[in-house]
C-alpha cells in the first residue's frame, strides 16, 4: 500500500528531525543527571528569580519535595526524550516536555535587572533557549509526525491528515483529504 502525508518530503523531514533532536537533548540531559549521583536541582531552584521564585525556593527548601522533584525531573527528561525520539505516546511527551520547560523558564526568566548565579552561555532578554525549545515543542504538537515516522504509527495507526471533525479550517481539511490517499 502506498501512502502519502499532507506534508511534503522536506516538511516531514524537518519536523521529524526537530522531534528527534529535541528528544535527544531531553534524554541526554536526563541521562547525565541519572549518572551523576551528586546531582540535585536544589542549586538551580535556590537560584530562582522572578514571579515564582518563592515557589521554587520553597521546593528547594524541603528535603522530601526535593527528592520527588529530582526523581521526576530526571526520569521525566529521560522518558520524554525517549518518547520523542521513538515517536511513541508523542503527544503526551510533548505536553510533558512543554510543562518541564515552562518550569525551567519560570524559575529563571531572563528579565531586565535580574542576574543569576548560574552562568549563562548566551545573552537573553525575555526569550531564552528554554522558551524557544518550548515553542518548538508547540510546533511539533500542532504538526505531528509520530504516526508517519515513529512507533505511534504502529500503536495508533498511520496518520490520517484529513480530520472529519476539523470544521474550523475546512479548506485545509479538503486539501489534506486530497493529498492523503491509500492505494
Amino acid at each position: 500500500m502506498e501512502w502519502k502525508s499532507s506534508y511534503n518530503k522536506w516538511q516531514l523531514t524537518m519536523l521529524t528531525v526537530l522531534r528527534i533532536i529535541i528528544g535527544w537533548h531531553f534524554m541526554y540531559e536526563g541521562i547525565v543527571k541519572l549518572w551523576n549521583p551528586g546531582w540535585s536541582a536544589k542549586g538551580y531552584l535556590t537560584d530562582s528569580a522572578g514571579l515564582f521564585a518563592g515557589l521554587f525556593e520553597g521546593m528547594a527548601g524541603n528535603a522530601s519535595i526535593m527528592q520527588a522533584v529530582d526523581f521526576l525531573n530526571v526520569w521525566g527528561l529521560v522518558l520524554i526524550g525517549a518518547a520523542l525520539m521513538l515517536g511513541v505516546f508523542t503527544r503526551y511527551a510533548i505536553i510533558a516536555g512543554m510543562i518541564l520547560l515552562g518550569f525551567y523558564y519560570l524559575s529563571h526568566p531572563p528579565l531586565i535587572g535580574i542576574k543569576y548565579a548560574l552562568p549563562s552561555e548566551g545573552s537573553y532578554l525575555w526569550v531564552n533557549k528554554n522558551l524557544i525549545e518550548l515553542f518548538a515543542l508547540g510546533v511539533l504538537l500542532v504538526f505531528p509526525t509520530s504516526r508517519i515516522i515513529g512507533l505511534d504509527r504502529l500503536i495508533f495507526g498511520r496518520q490520517e491528515h484529513l480530520s472529519d471533525q476539523d470544521t474550523s479550517t475546512p479548506n485545509v481539511s479538503e486539501k489534506r483529504k486530497e493529498a492523503t490517499h491509500i492505494s
Binding site: 521529524t16 525520539m85 521513538l86 515516522i149 515513529g150 512507533l151 504509527r153
Partner: peptide, 12 residues
C-alpha cells in the same frame, strides 16, 4: 509501517 515506525531506532 514497521520500517517507518521504527525509523528512529538507529538514532537511539
Amino acid at each position: 509501517d514497521v520500517v517507518r515506525g521504527l525509523a528512529a531506532l538507529p538514532v537511539l
